[in-house]
Design a protein around this nucleic acid. Structure first.
Length: 502
RNA sequence: CGGGGUGUAGCGCAGUCUGGCUAGCGCACCUGGUUUGGGACCAGGGGGUCGAAGGUUCGAAUCCUUUCACCCCGACCA
């Protein structure tokens, strides 16, 4: 058996593999507080790159950043009935504002708050409250705000990046004069997310509408992008909600229209989180560790000097430094290439695997022999073999190679999803598809299933024993042909994507 | 929160059933040497409240009780 850098492998134990990748790539660690994570520099670097791209996209579509507080008065959360129901169970509550020495030498909470504060699980209520103050006339609309923040949801089951008690995200909140405009905004931001997922994360996604049962609490319509992970489970990677007038009515976000009539604004909200890093890991990484799409990699090229004797040191370092400078002058994705020299005094093989595990797209090794032939030794993270290349040729081509890697990752992920997506006309076959071959390893199952269905509680009930959920109703329905719901037999035009999910 | 599992050095583990020399192994780390286009080799070395607390015992990593954390499955969820 070939030696892999990560044990267990994906086939042996997928969740175990995921944890090891996160650890081996130095992305994050658990914190002393259950459910919280420490994001380490390499992991945070990915997040910073995601932020930079998304932030630009938000601004390009007319949004402005602002910041709203971490604490929300309990009474705010109580205003929107469905919203409360959805989030109440997982809210962290602050009840005191002071610590005093206790009888046993420790500290005990003192100074009880008059009204408990909720640590935001999301900010619709506090932002809505402010919107109500800011919006008076149609001239104040649309109001399009985004905030980068942390939120807390006290989850029962946590997993680094995929579900943590505290996570980082962005939440966009907008208010509009008309329903049409708000709907358009909801769809536009979904498109932004899909664009980001596919063209930056190299992760193919299905854009769709959520079924009634999967909707955001308080929304009229929820859209999402859904991606397939390598264990063929679905991961919801971003959501965009059309909130109708639910929140504006609950919070009195009113404005005067041109005719002088008072009406409620139409609002939206949309978000992506550090969960995207989990998505990235599970879309591309292999049994040797993390694989990063070049556009989001904190470092795109690492140069490893090969120094055998001390006398060679200066010459080799000189060669590497000038190469670094040339690469920094090169462009990829409209920016200078992100390159670093790893001059640590560790053995070459070890150094190589360090960068393999962290998913650096291109590794360069440069030693006396390369200097002699004015070349470099190039290893690509998406290919097993390394090869030599002329130095100037490499410098000229570095952007192109990064582009090839980026595209290759997307194509590979897309092919994987297509291979594992099937259309079903019979319920028996659908059930068989989702029945694990091995009861001890229930995570090994079919993939995505497409079929006609009717969005109703009856279908949800039928799916429960299979542990399958409707992921979304894809927006690009091939044809609106009439079909039959494979669960109920009723006529329908709706096609859904089904799968097991994170 | 329910069921199952695991906590022993930074990482991966053995030892626990059947209590008994100074708690071990591999990798990593430090020192010296030999190596050098590859996850090296030899020698020496550092590092442990055996998850935590309490109990049983002459004696506890090992038995009992409680508790915490992590993992898997379920319910819930970005």
């Amino acid at each position: 058996m070939a030696k892999t850098a990560i044990t267990p492998t994906r086939d042996q134990d997928y969740p175990g593999w995921y944890q090891q990748v996160v650890r081996s790539a130095d992305l994050a660690e658990n914190s002393p507080v259950r459910g919280c994570m420490v994001i380490k520099p390499w992991g945070y670097g990915i997040w910073e790159n995601m932020q930079a791209v998304l932030d630009r996209m938000f601004k390009d579509t007319g949004h402005e950043n602002a910041y709203f507080p971490l604490f929300i008065p309990k009474s705010f959360l109580e205003k929107e009935a469905e919203h409360v129901e959805g989030f109440a169970k997982e809210c962290a509550v602050v009840t005191h504002h002071r610590l005093e020495p206790g009888p046993d030498g420790g500290l005990v909470p003192a100074g009880k708050l008059e009204e408990p504060l909720i640590v935001r699980p999301t900010s619709e209520t506090i932002i809505g409250h402010m919107f109500a103050k800011w919006i008076e006339s149609y001239r104040d609309l649309p109001l399009k705000i985004n905030q980068w923040a942390n939120v807390v949801r006290w989850e029962m089951r946590v997993r680094l990046f995929l579900r943590t008690a505290e996570f980082l995200w962005q939440e966009g909140h907008t208010a509009h004069a008309t329903k049409e405009e708000a709907l358009e905004e909801t769809r536009l931001m979904l498109d932004v997310y899909a664009d980001f997922a596919e063209n930056y994360m190299a992760m193919p996604v299905i854009k769709g509408e959520k079924t009634v049962g999967e909707r955001f609490p308080g929304a009229d319509t929820t859209y999402s992008i859904e991606a397939m992970m390598q264990d063929r489970k679905a991961l919801q990677a971003g959501t965009s909600h059309f909130l109708g007038q639910n929140f504006s009515k609950a919070q009195e976000i009113k404005f005067q229209d041109k005719e002088g009539n008072e009406s409620f604004a139409w609002t939206t909200s949309w978000g992506v989180s550090t969960r995207l890093i989990g998505a990235l890991i599970m879309t591309h990484s292999d049994d040797d560790g993390l694989v990063l799409p070049p556009k989001l990699a904190p470092k795109q090229v690492v140069i490893c000097p090969v120094i055998r004797k001390d006398e060679e040191r200066d010459q080799v370092m000189e060669y590497c430094k000038s190469l670094e400078a040339e690469l920094k002058a090169a462009q990829y994705d409209g920016q200078q290439v992100r390159v670093t020299i790893d001059a640590r005094d560790v053995r070459g093989g070890e150094k190589k695997w360090h960068h393999v595990k962290r998913g650096v797209p291109i590794r360069i090794e440069a030693g006396p022999r390369d200097i002699e032939s004015d070349s470099v030794f190039v290893g690509r993270r998406d290919q097993p073999k390394s090869s030599g290349m002329g130095r100037s040729e490499f410098v000229a081509k570095v952007g192109e190679i990064l582009g090839e890697i980026q595209d290759g990752l997307f194509q590979r992920a897309l092919a994987y999803r297509e291979e594992n997506t099937r259309t079903f006309k019979s319920l028996d076959k659908f059930k068989k598809y989702f029945t694990p071959k091995n009861a001890d390893k229930p995570e090994v199952h079919g993939g995505f299933a497409k079929c006609y269905f009717v969005d109703c509680a009856e279908v949800d009930e039928m799916l429960k024993p299979l542990k399958v959920t409707p992921r979304c109703i894809p927006l690009d329905q091939e044809e609106a042909e009439e079909g039959r719901c494979i669960f109920t037999g009723k006529p329908t035009k709706t096609v859904g994507v089904f799968g097991k999910s994170y």
